[in-house]
């Protein structure tokens, strides 16, 4: 009996040391970075920039694998169910991580199944209005929408996306009502503001910037918590509309499956902390229209929690409203 116990104890020690050493020499093989969107898109670009940097920093190959579909849910679910050994990571995005789990059915619970490491890039949304409208600021928008309930049409990238929910949240917070016109993607929604088919859109900065430069639309605010370095003159919706805590920002972040050992998380987090200051990365991020960002795993987790809470309230109000 005693020997059996001893044997068992020995095995446990053996197993734990081998586990510890596995963590210590991670990475020993190629790391797969899942991009839950199609190649060629914005998240794909951020994923490839990150993969290129991590290859150097971790001295291993980092393979980008696109698992697109269902607005990022398919790829994110794949990572949530992957073995938590540090060899499968995800360039997740706000939609599939913070919005979809409260708005629809997903196979994963972001709080239980995902281990956030760091946000790597953010893009704020820009509130753009058609040039023919007499609206130059957020208070004017609120006043106009209140005077003409349901008359303003806003374009979004599709039902349930951030471009839809950020306006829905704005309406709930300001007591306004506008008509939702979904498009397939942010670019056509932005083009519709230019052509005058819809009057307003909370659109990605990447789509808005060229139109702002061409002076075909009027930008009146950004939806992030802080002003954007790309358009420092634009106030945030929160400050201009006196809407404390209003935030709708598109982010991409590196996330591992829950249960990934702490030393591995730390190794990746340390590498990403340096990545944000890398000159090459900064240049490529700017070319993709993104701003490089670093957060600690704890900050990232809290951000997801806050967003889940914010959208859960909104989804409930939207359902009750119907």
């Amino acid at each position: 009996m005693k020997t059996k116990l001893g044997l068992l104890a020995g095995l446990v020690i053996l197993a734990s040391t081998s586990l510890a050493s596995a963590q210590a020499d991670w990475p020993r093989k190629a790391v797969t970075l899942i991009v839950p969107y199609a190649p060629g898109g914005y998240t794909d670009a951020v994923g490839r920039i990150t993969a290129r940097y991590l290859e150097k920093a971790l001295a291993t190959s980092v393979v980008v694998e696109n698992r697109a579909g269902a607005g990022g849910i398919i790829g994110t679910a794949y990572v949530a169910k992957a073995p938590p050994d540090g060899y499968t990571l995800c360039v997740c995005s706000v939609g599939a991580t913070s919005v979809a789990p409260v708005a629809q059915k997903t196979d994963y619970d972001p709080k239980k199944d995902l281990r956030p490491i760091s946000i790597v890039s953010t893009i704020p949304q820009t509130v753009i209005v058609g040039k023919s409208l007499p609206i130059t600021s957020i208070p004017e928008l609120i006043a106009y929408a209140k005077a003409n309930p349901g008359k303003l049409n806003y374009g979004s990238s599709g039902a349930g996306g951030l471009m839809h929910y950020s306006v829905a949240l704005f309406q709930v917070r300001t007591g306004t009502r506008m008509t939702h016109v979904p498009f397939k993607g942010g670019a056509p929604a932005t083009a519709a503001v230019v052509s005058g088919e819809v009057q307003i859109s909370f659109t990605n900065m990447t789509d808005a910037l060229p139109q702002m430069e061409a002076n075909t639309v009027r930008a009146i605010a950004v939806t992030s918590v802080e002003r954007s370095p790309y358009a420092p003159n634009l106030p945030t919706v929160a400050e201009a509309g006196n809407l404390k805590g209003y935030s709708a920002e598109s982010w991409n972040g590196i996330i591992a499956p829950a249960g990934t050992p702490e030393p591995i998380i730390k190794k990746i987090s340390d590498a990403l902390a340096k990545m944000v200051d890398d000159a090459d990365v900064k240049k490529s991020m700017a070319a993709a229209g993104a701003t490089g960002v670093f957060t600690t795993p704890a900050e990232f987790a809290k951000r997801i929690d806050d967003e889940l809470a914010q959208w859960a309230v909104l989804v409930k109000e939207m359902k009750d409203g119907k």
Partner: peptide, 20 residues
């Protein structure tokens, strides 16, 4: 796939792979 106005899936027979 997905209904454009509601964002809900239709005729996918429960296959997530068909939601687009």
């Amino acid at each position: 796939g997905s209904d454009i106005n509601s964002g809900l899936t239709r005729m996918t027979f429960g296959f997530l792979q068909l939601s687009d």
